[in-house]
Write a protein that binds this DNA or RNA. Structure first.
Lengths: 136, 136
DNA sequence: TTCACCTGGTTTCATATTGAAACCAGGTTT
DNA sequence: AAACCTGGTTTCAATATGAAACCAGGTGAA
């Protein structure tokens, strides 16, 4: 018999629960729980920017991935894509109000990564050394 | 000429900057900016748990991925792996103090995903309908 | 006008990463 | 003995990624 287990966390009042395999919130987490999406959202938090500006600001992102990430974020209603009828045309990306509600959380994660880097590198050295010694 | 651009955000006081390609903080973001890692950390926020308990609580995670994620989190000093010398042996995973400092941010992201699901699904429907109409 | 480079992408392809599933050694229960 | 638990590793096919080429169109200098 499968023992009923208490749920791992209190489901959100809206009824979604990311712990459930079939929950649509999983798809959202797939999207925003992603290195590039977090960086793009955090970049747009500062200001509206054009495609190639974002690309240059986020070192190492490829055009393909950036266009995919932006397309997905636009579909999710987090980012607004605006084509300006100038000559030549310019395309800018900005956060929607919904996107702005997300960036606080995204920024926390990024800031955490930066401010705890040293501790993590230290932990990694300890771990690797222990492994090396264990295999002697 | 390459116009010097103001940096996309204020670098962290520790000197790390996730926007730089070569920054070690990128490796951290690679690790924690990941759906499964976020879910595992959030699960462990509730309490210490054994391997197969975590696996069952997080619907859909494979054994391989879970063991990889846990191994990485352990190496980063975020999760503590304890082998209990019982018969049979039990292995439990818990958050380290460092890991606990991260879970607040992780939980925010997960909670955001749950509480804004409906809005995102709505945006997706609008987007898809617009696309469908445009291609008529 | 031609060369070179900008724009915002898409396509191609080789190489990771992932997920599903099998497998493993050991132990417990029936 | 058969079946299931433990905590994983291995295998393999499908998928995602990154680097690079390519594209159409525009700009600016020689």
């Amino acid at each position: 018999m499968v023992t009923p287990r208490k749920p791992p966390h209190t489901p959100d009042p809206t009824g979604f629960n990311v712990y459930a395999r079939e929950c649509p919130a999983r798809m959202v987490l797939d999207r925003i729980g992603d290195k590039w999406a977090l960086l793009v959202l955090d970049r747009l938090r500062r200001d509206t920017a054009r495609f190639n500006v974002i690309r240059r600001d986020i070192g190492g992102i490829s055009q393909k991935v950036l266009s995919q990430v932006l397309k997905n974020l636009e579909r999710d209603g987090l980012v607004l894509r605006t084509v300006h009828a100038t000559v030549p045309v310019a395309v800018t990306y900005s956060l929607t109000p919904l996107g702005e509600t997300l960036t606080q959380a995204a920024a926390s994660l990024i800031h955490w990564a930066e401010s705890h880097m040293a501790q993590i590198q230290h932990a990694q050295r300890l771990y690797d050394d222990r492994l090396a010694n264990a295999s002697l």
